[in-house]
Write a protein that binds this DNA or RNA. Structure first.
Lengths: 117, 117
DNA sequence: TAAATATATGAACAATTATTCATATGAAAG
DNA sequence: CTTTCATATGAATAATTGTTCATATATTTA
């Protein structure tokens, strides 16, 4: 038993339609999810995260290590921080950044597995 | 024992620098990884993937189900396909799309866990 | 308080991208 | 062969985004 969604021929089963409508998270959640992945979708930010895999670091060290300007790194750390992927700790003039949790590593590793296939 | 990368004060240990330099994937890999996440970084594509979690579907069904134009869906399926996240199967006039592997589900679930925290 | 240093931020610019519209391709049916 | 239908695609547009430059903020030290 199928329903006609759009085509001449019947393609999709009605219970599939209901299942999708039931399981599809609401628009706001989907938007947030896309926003999260957008944060991973820049190689500068990926590099920063890889650096932080090893240890917490201050802004200027990351900049030096990755050969990028302090400003660029600072802007990107702001993006990473507002996505709660990194957290900051101030020590005098210096601000140390570190991964906020292990999700970051898991997500990146899953992605890496996919591209290395 | 620290080295002075950029600041007056010594921040980062020399062995950390070596570790990062050793573990950091090459630029091309990092770029590919960012490109992969960029694909997940759009809510239309996320919706398409969620729909395909349930069953394979043809273009016009996805369009109808998600209330988007056939053209928009087709363009996005092309992006998903070139990232090897979905695969296509032709049956007459109709083209059915489905997830190409389980990585997709894993990556999305990891992301979802992060934002629901 | 003034100078020095680490970081943050606003504006501007170039580059990328998602959607729409119009149209092309490809397959089936008459 | 022509029509019809499903899908793909190219061009155009609007919107988003990463970097740079200049400058602001915050902290320490002289």
């Amino acid at each position: 038993m199928c329903i006609d969604l759009c085509c001449e021929e019947k393609c999709i089963h009605e219970d599939i339609v209901h299942k999708v409508e039931h399981d599809l998270p609401n628009d706001e959640t989907l938007y947030d999810l896309a926003e999260l992945f957008k944060v991973f979708g820049d190689s500068t930010r990926i590099k920063i995260l890889y650096a932080l895999f090893e240890a917490e670091m201050c802004v200027c060290d990351i900049a030096e290590l990755l050969n990028l300007t302090q400003s660029a790194i600072s802007h990107q750390l702001r993006v990473l921080k507002s996505a709660k992927l990194v957290k900051a700790r101030r020590a005098g003039k210096t601000v140390f950044y570190s991964l906020s949790d292990e999700h970051v590593r898991l997500i990146i590793n899953q992605g890496m597995e996919h591209i290395l296939e």
